[in-house]
């Protein structure tokens, strides 16, 4: 009898301990989530708070002068570099994505996929340094838009290829077969049936790549240089400013004016990056494409 009582109380103690441990576990997990999301909210808050107060018309109409003035040259530089990179990367990335999705189920395809993953995992500073020794010094382009755009293009092509491939694979095979049955050629099927069916996925990939290129810094330091002036239209031999440069160098200056410029630049970059990423995620969730 007493043994049975002992047993029940021991069981009750055990059950209590298990319940307590479980609750502690849930609280710890919730804390983890809080510590992952909290800093993000703080980053956005800090950048918006300090960035907004630095906003003025002058910011968008004048160029940087030392560590004062506006950001017109940097905004223009970031736009030119990013669009230049997209111009180079989109045809290559989408083309590669089409190949991998449509004809890449062989060994060659998996080899390309693997090497593309390796390129994605390569630190961006390594790519930047590669461009420095090849384009900037060996080819003698010096700090220039072309060197910067090519570097960013190398960085984003693997993303574009991967997302395009995923998007194209969502198009059902029956649609391809129907196209071929109607006598369409291979390019006809790809461009008139498969690509239009996956267009939102491809556009998603391009937008995400744009967000990456707007936010990159490390590969540009060794390729774009920095300039206080607007772009003079030359592709080589003329350095160019960009927003992320302002963020990392001006925050190290002692005066509050340059800090304000750094936060304003960070706010602009964050606005573009977050707008693209939030927009794409909301849209993709609705259409369930990627």
């Amino acid at each position: 009898m007493s043994a049975a009582v002992n047993n029940t109380s021991r069981n009750q103690g055990l059950a209590l301990r298990r319940a307590i441990i479980s609750n502690i576990g849930w609280v710890a997990c919730g804390l983890g989530l809080l510590l992952v999301i909290g800093p993000l909210l703080d980053i956005v808050g800090v950048v918006v708070f300090h960035g907004i107060s630095a906003f003025s018309i002058k910011l968008f109409t004048t160029t940087t002068n030392g560590t004062a003035g506006g950001l017109l040259n940097a905004i223009e530089g970031t736009l030119v570099i990013s669009l230049g990179a997209m111009l180079i990367a989109v045809p290559i990335g989408v083309g590669a994505g089409i190949y991998l999705a449509e004809y890449g189920t062989n060994k060659l395809g998996s080899a390309i996929r693997f090497l593309s993953d390796v390129l994605t995992g390569t630190p961006s500073i390594v790519l930047g340094y590669f461009s420095y020794i090849v384009f900037v010094t060996t080819l003698g382009w010096n700090f220039s838009i072309l060197a910067a755009a090519i570097t960013i293009a190398i960085l984003i092509v693997p993303y574009l290829a991967r997302i395009t491939e995923i998007a194209l694979r969502q198009v059902p095979n029956t649609m391809r077969e129907a196209g071929f049955a109607l006598g369409a050629s291979e390019p006809g099927v790809v461009f008139k049936i498969v690509l239009p069916g996956a267009v939102s996925g491809v556009v998603t990939g391009a937008l995400l790549a744009l967000a990456i290129s707007v936010g990159e810094t490390a590969p540009l330091i060794y390729t774009a240089g920095w300039s206080n002036y607007l772009w003079n239209g030359q592709l080589t031999n003329s350095p160019i400013g960009y927003l992320t440069y302002v963020i990392w160098t001006f925050i190290d200056q002692p005066d509050s004016q340059s800090h304000a410029l750094a936060f304003a630049a960070a706010l602009l970059v964050m606005l573009v990056v977050l707008a693209i990423n939030v927009g794409v995620r909301l849209l993709v969730r609705r259409t369930k494409l990627v």
Partner: peptide, 23 residues
């Protein structure tokens, strides 16, 4: 919530650095 977690990954490195320096 899971979108917020994903968004942490897209914040540019230099902005993390800025937050590090400022906060």
């Amino acid at each position: 919530l899971s979108m917020l977690v994903e968004l942490v990954a897209v914040v540019p490195s230099v902005v993390f650095g800025l937050w590090g320096v400022a906060v």
